[in-house]
């Protein structure tokens, strides 16, 4: 049996967090609850985030979107500022697990679980999102790369809570793409995934490329060499093949039940070629 705490505001949440350093934070519970089956139960103390208003809601700020950490995937998808404004993230949310899980699971949970396969992580990386952490000493901001240290490991301090995700509004990225390779059409853990954002100049040449892979290393993999290889070129198959070679060299995938490292490496590169189909449309 666990003791369940339901704080009604951020101050109460932070006080509980300080008093119960071993407590688990739970938004939708879609990662925590299944994992507890294998661990023989939930932790002794569970702090629910559902009634903390500061963690909910999406607000538009100066050039950025502030997404409450407890916002559900379904709520994000339904919000046009995400659904239309951040297509790379929306595509990932649309193939995350299943409708029932999207109704429960939160973006903050997806980040804090820090799975190499977390579906929202590659899009948040290419969007250059930052996380807002609150503790009793105040608020701090980190980039996603600073926050996620490895599989299941984050920079969240003992008394801290992930409050929000800050997403700069992308300007001019006409080509945004997310693709997950799973072993079935829904409820599939990414074998490898790619988030891509390309800003093209007036002549269709790549002015800026941001590429990030999921399930291709201990954390999301960015590949500056692949991004650089596209600069100044149209996203044609030959340009993308050159970038794919860099990507295959950069990823650090593992062998597991779902696929071999070699497959992941090959497909991490292959997925870039899809951008040629999208840009020719």
């Amino acid at each position: 049996m666990s003791r369940v705490h339901a704080p009604r505001g951020l101050a109460e949440l932070l006080a509980l967090r300080a008093d119960l350093p071993g407590a688990a934070l739970m938004a939708g519970g879609t990662d925590l609850v299944p994992r507890s089956r294998a661990r023989g139960g939930l932790p002794e103390d569970v702090i629910l985030l559902q009634d903390v208003p500061e963690l909910h809601g999406i607000t538009s700020g100066k050039g950025l979107l502030r997404i409450g950490a407890a916002a559900t995937h379904a709520a994000l998808l339904a919000d046009p500022r995400v659904g239309r404004g951040l297509p790379v993230l929306a595509r990932a949310l649309a193939c995350l697990a299943s409708p029932a899980i999207r109704n429960m699971g939160s973006i903050g949970g997806n980040i804090c679980t820090a799975s190499p396969a977390g579906d929202t992580l590659p899009p948040l990386h290419v969007l250059e999102a930052r996380v807002e952490l609150a503790g009793r000493e105040g608020v701090r901001e980190l980039s996603l790369a600073e926050f996620i240290l490895g599989p299941g490991r984050t920079a969240l301090g003992p008394g801290e809570v992930l409050c929000a995700v800050l997403v700069p509004r992308p300007e001019g990225f006409s080509l945004q793409h997310f693709e997950k390779v799973g072993l079935r059409g829904a409820m599939a853990i990414a074998v490898v995934s790619l988030a891509a954002m390309l800003r093209l100049d007036g002549r269709g040449r790549v002015a800026e490329a941001r590429l990030a892979w999921g399930s291709a290393g201990p954390a999301v993999v960015r590949c500056p060499a692949a991004e650089a290889a596209l600069l100044g070129r149209r996203p044609t198959l030959s340009a993308l093949r050159a970038a794919a070679r860099h990507a295959r060299a950069a990823v650090r995938p593992i062998d597991d039940l779902r696929a071999s490292a070699a497959y992941r490496r090959e497909v991490a590169g292959n997925l870039l070629l899809r951008l040629a189909d999208l840009s020719s449309r």
């Binding site: 299944p34 079935r184 059409g185 829904a186 409820m187």
Partner: peptide, 26 residues
């Protein structure tokens, strides 16, 4: 996709997140 994987008689995918039956989406 369905394949009960074993190593030395031990099942490696004993739950429905690792043993993959088709979904309605498939």
């Amino acid at each position: 996709s369905e394949d009960v994987l074993t190593r030395e008689g031990r099942i490696l995918n004993p739950d429905l997140s690792t043993y993959l039956v088709p979904t309605a989406a498939d």
